[in-house]
Amino acid sequence: MKILLVEDNPDDVQLTLRAFKKSNIGNEVIVAADGQEALDFFFGENGAASRGGDALPALVLLDLQLPKVNGIEVLKKLRADDRTRLLPIVILTSSREQVDMLNGYAYGCNSYIRKPVDFNQFAEAVRQLGLYWLVLNESPGTNHGL
């Protein structure tokens, strides 16, 4: 079960990976550095969407402020496609602006998490996230081999 991390800040990538490690989440993490890379991952030539099954990540962690194509656009495109419509997508962002939250939920994210400054709190958030979405949550994908 793979995790797709869509994040342009390499520091944040490092810290997120470290938080997974600390929480003993050993899943493979694929990093997309901007919105276009994320879309390519799914819909590019021989992309994950066309291959389906294990090629699709079990969880997408999506930043909002992204170069080229922003997070909300990525979310819209993933939700518009039948093959990725049901993927668990968690918005992981610095922003707590109401407009971002409203847009996130309006376009169908599963959770909206604001990255805390305190790394310990951040690590805790990532741990709970992994535990919830990768272990506790029953998604149609895991049950029916979508």
């Binding site: 810290l15 610095s94 805390p116 400054v117 790394f119």
Partner: peptide
């Protein structure tokens, strides 16, 4: 968004 990101990096 922008001011908090570097803080997170420093702390992390």
């Amino acid at each position: 968004h922008d001011l908090r990101a570097p803080l997170r990096t420093i702390d992390g």
